[in-house]
């Protein structure tokens, strides 16, 4: 974890950083909890015969891909937690931009994720804009990709986050600021 200053940007664009393994295997119980939370009755997740016929066995809902990387709220012996999207925080620190919001994100889905899989992520800084002024303040936009692979090295998803780090110009930030 190290701050990313203006002089570091060119060197880090496109470089895979912060390899992280999910702390636990993909589990069926969480699939059901998530489907229950949104009343998703897709038989792929509830009917073994349908899952076998359509997807060659059980899978997790594709949009759950980031769920497998949120650590337990507590774990024995743990004193600090890594931050998801660490590059975002490295940029805020290195560029001196105390506030930040995520404006949009895209998920592209590849190989299905299956119960028992162990996923690995890496973060890649894709771009950092010149300084811009918006109604929030003056700062920079950046795009960070999170690449997800399974234990066989198959690509399962790529998430792209667009963030805006800024210095406040008097207006409050968005409802889900990450700072």
């Amino acid at each position: 974890m190290s701050a990313i200053g203006v002089d570091d940007i060119d060197r880090l664009i496109g470089v895979e950083q912060y390899e992280e393994e999910g702390g636990f295997p993909v589990e069926q119980g969480y699939v059901w909890t998530t489907c229950a939370s949104v009343e998703n009755g897709n038989p792929l997740f509830w009917d073994e015969q349908v899952a076998e016929r359509v997807t060659g066995g059980p899978i997790a809902p594709p949009t759950m891909v980031s769920v497998w990387f949120r650590p337990h709220h507590w774990a024995p012996g743990r004193t600090t937690q890594g931050l998801p999207l660490q590059i975002h925080f490295d940029l805020k620190e290195g560029l001196g931009l105390p506030e930040a919001v995520m404006s949009d994100n895209t998920i592209v889905f590849h190989e299905p994720v299956r119960p028992g899989d162990r996923l690995v992520t890496r973060q890649i800084l894709q771009s950092v804009s010149d300084e811009k002024t918006t109604k929030l303040g003056t700062g920079r936009f950046w795009v960070i990709d999170v690449v997800y692979r399974n234990q066989r090295g198959d690509l399962v998803a790529v998430e792209s986050y667009t963030g805006f780090g800024y210095r406040r110009a008097g207006a409050p930030g968005g409802s889900e600021a990450t700072s």
């Binding site: 995520m102 949009d104 895209t106 998920i107 889905f109």
Partner: peptide, 14 residues
Amino acid sequence: PYGRLQRMTFRMLG
């Protein structure tokens, strides 16, 4: 169930 998501882009407004 045969529909398979390829990509989704979200924009949070409120």
